[in-house]
């Protein structure tokens, strides 16, 4: 009997605590492409610092999967994708509010072990005994890799096609793969764990990153403010520092 009373009291206390915190903080949920991980974490921190009691909740993943989750009703206020095709999927599903705006561009590069021990000198160097890892063609970084290979007339033979760009980077950083096709920004974010070998013609297939608020946003004002912040001078500076190009 006493135990029941204790449990009931605890439950009530928890409920009250839940209400109290729900009143104090407002949460804006942002779905963002995996390649935006470090940048958006920084942006969210700056955004939160300006606003009392505002919490930015970030969910990173392959853009196509995030678009799919949005279409299935995942609760998000903002969606930032790594290419137009992934954003178009969300627009088509009718979950995007208004017109998506481009906020950055990103180029592909070859991530290799520090010091480039395999002496890889470009796309044409990705053959023979080089263990190559790329993104799956279903996600933006995979699409970009295929476009690059087609332009350069190279046939890529990856040992694995990973579900998102951070998995590719992880395989190279762990030393399991000799080379991985990732974004310029991923190599910079990896801070010395991998080196970059530039790809000629990477500019031609640079991804444009679109951002938009969602139709069913729980915090439409905050969502709009976050998008504006990403597009603002300060937001753009963070993106530029991370290696992104202007949209």
């Amino acid at each position: 009997m006493r135990l029941t009373r204790v449990v009931a009291a605890a439950a009530i206390a928890l409920l009250l605590a839940g209400c109290a915190t729900a009143e104090a903080t407002r949460t804006v949920t942002v779905f963002a492409a995996a390649s935006l991980t470090e940048t958006f974490e920084q942006l969210a921190e700056k955004f939160e610092a300006r606003r009392e009691g505002v919490d930015v909740r970030l969910s990173f993943g392959g853009s196509s999967r995030l678009a799919e989750q949005l279409a299935e009703g995942a609760p998000a206020d903002v969606f930032a994708a790594a290419d137009d095709k992934a954003m178009a999927k969300a627009v088509q599903a009718g979950v995007i509010d208004g017109e998506p705006q481009r906020f950055a561009r990103n180029r592909m590069t070859i991530a290799v072990a520090p010091g480039n021990p395999k002496k890889i000198d470009g796309l044409t160097g990705l053959r023979g005994d080089v263990v190559l890892v790329t993104c799956a063609p279903e996600v933006p970084c995979g699409r970009a890799a295929q476009a690059l290979a087609a332009n350069a007339n190279v046939r890529l033979q990856p040992a694995s096609e990973e579900p998102d760009v951070k998995s590719v980077l992880g395989k190279v950083a762990a030393g399991e793969a000799d080379a991985g096709l990732v974004y310029v920004t991923d190599v910079r974010a990896a801070a010395g764990k991998v080196d970059a070998v530039p790809i000629t013609g990477a500019d031609a297939v640079a991804n444009a990153y679109p951002i938009a608020t969602t139709r069913e946003a729980a915090e439409p004002d905050l969502a709009r403010q976050f998008v504006e912040f990403v597009l603002s001078d300060e937001g753009q500076r963070v993106l530029r520092d991370a290696g992104f190009d202007a949209p």
């Binding site: 279903e138 096609e161 579900p163 395989k171």
Partner: peptide
């Protein structure tokens, strides 16, 4: 599997991995 073996058609992409990959492109 996806952590240790990766994901490549006909080599390491088993049915569950294919389901995961297709969920990106063609639900």
């Amino acid at each position: 599997t996806i952590t240790f073996a990766g994901s490549l058609q006909a080599v390491t992409r088993t049915l569950p991995l294919e389901v995961y990959a297709q969920a990106e492109a063609d639900v």
